[in-house]
Design a protein around this nucleic acid. Structure first.
Lengths: 222, 222
DNA sequence: AGCGCAGATATTGTCGACAAAACATTAATT
DNA sequence: AATTAATGTTTTGTCGACAATATCTGCGCT
């Protein structure tokens, strides 16, 4: 189930995507209970498809289920965010390493083109960059790893959780220009087919992002 | 769903565990189709619980499902094994890094005790070591990371796939004494709370294991 | 004979109903 | 008054039936 490319076919698919969207956006509150009957009336489908959707959400770590008790949306905590970024650092570092050897020259050229596009956007001072551009950048490298496990874990799983934290903790924030430089260096390493350096730079990049988030969290908590 | 500690409660749980066991052991052939009706008669439960079990197996990457077509057991390929070990290297490396800071002194003492036990076993020349002992060693470090995502991805997901490759490609193999030394050094780094070194050593350890598997595969292929 | 189409068959997707377990409420006892 | 037991309600788990989609079979056509 490559959740990024294929279009929704079955009712369970559509319900899964809709529910995931609602959870990420916070329309369904973090920590709240997912009542099967209630959802089934709200989304206009039978309990069976709701159950299937919930099962998939559990696989993404967006909800937690207990036998005979029910499912709850995961609670967002600063510790959880840290854990998430530790995994992300590890996996995206490996993705960058693999991308440096597995991406085609065309794909690398595309990455460079994306960078220049971003540079134009950043120069004009638009904040658009972070949300869409940053995601796109990381997506390309993840896919460039050509490792299906890596791709699945990151894109089908971790990324939605990260988006959830971003949205609900209110982090569209700064880190635009510095992040751009980091991106540039990562692409440079990949262009040079320097796998080790690409991994190191990507890990540092994600570590910095985490630190920036933690600072923001601390200031919000006051 | 912490699949390692909790005991099976519902029929879906039991069916999931049984099916997973049968897939890992090769009783259900790699690449074969999982017919819902057939399984439902074989396992003596309704199609609903079979579907739930298959959904969970998909989350573990043990089966692949296509809408309106059905589920197949994943095909085992040398390339797949390489991809798996790339992810494992990345994640278990991070686990070792985190374990070095997050394990309690008692847990570390337990790790050292496990090592001496293994040493006795290895000295007497028993091959028992690799299967149970090695798994136990890695489990403890993974759990020692105290990172729930890491634990879930590795223990609920990747490890069963690795066991499947081990069983079906016939790898109980050697690498006993050398692996023991590697384990010893890893535990040493963790005992010294040297996170960076623990990660490096664990990554090398897993890389060596992968290389050993690849050699074995190549010789089997002749 | 090979290819394409139409009907028949089998498989997956969805639904509503029933069973079992958890939870809430009330009553009884100390 | 507090705790526990019993009962009733709600929620999840399981089942069999029906609908929709895919696969197979056989016929007709070129």
């Amino acid at each position: 189930m490559s959740l990024i490319t294929e279009s929704p076919i079955t009712a369970a698919d559509k319900t899964f995507f809709q529910l995931r969207k609602d959870i990420v956006k916070g329309k369904v509150l973090s920590g709240s209970k997912l009542s099967e009957t209630e959802l089934s009336t709200n989304y206009g489908v039978s309990r069976a498809v709701i159950r299937e959707a919930i099962n998939r959400l559990e696989a993404c770590h967006l909800v937690e289920r207990k036998a005979n008790i029910g499912a709850r949306v995961v609670a967002l905590t600063p510790e959880g965010l840290v854990e998430l970024y530790q995994v992300r650092e590890s996996l995206e570092g490996m993705a960058a390493r693999l991308a440096a050897t597995n991406m085609t020259d065309e794909e690398i050229a595309g990455l460079n083109a994306l960078l220049t596009t971003h540079f134009q956007t950043v120069k004009t001072g638009e904040t658009y960059y972070q949300e869409a551009g940053d995601v796109d950048f990381h997506y390309r490298i993840i896919l460039g790893s050509k490792n299906s496990h890596l791709i699945s874990i990151l894109i089908d799983g971790i990324y939605h959780l990260i988006r959830m934290y971003r949205v609900q903790f209110g982090m569209a924030g700064p880190r635009v220009t510095t992040a751009f430089d980091e991106h540039k260096h990562i692409v440079g390493a990949i262009s040079n087919r320097d796998a080790e350096l690409a991994e190191i730079l990507m890990r540092r990049h994600i570590l910095y992002t985490k630190n920036s988030f933690e600072k923001k969290l601390a200031s919000n908590a006051i």
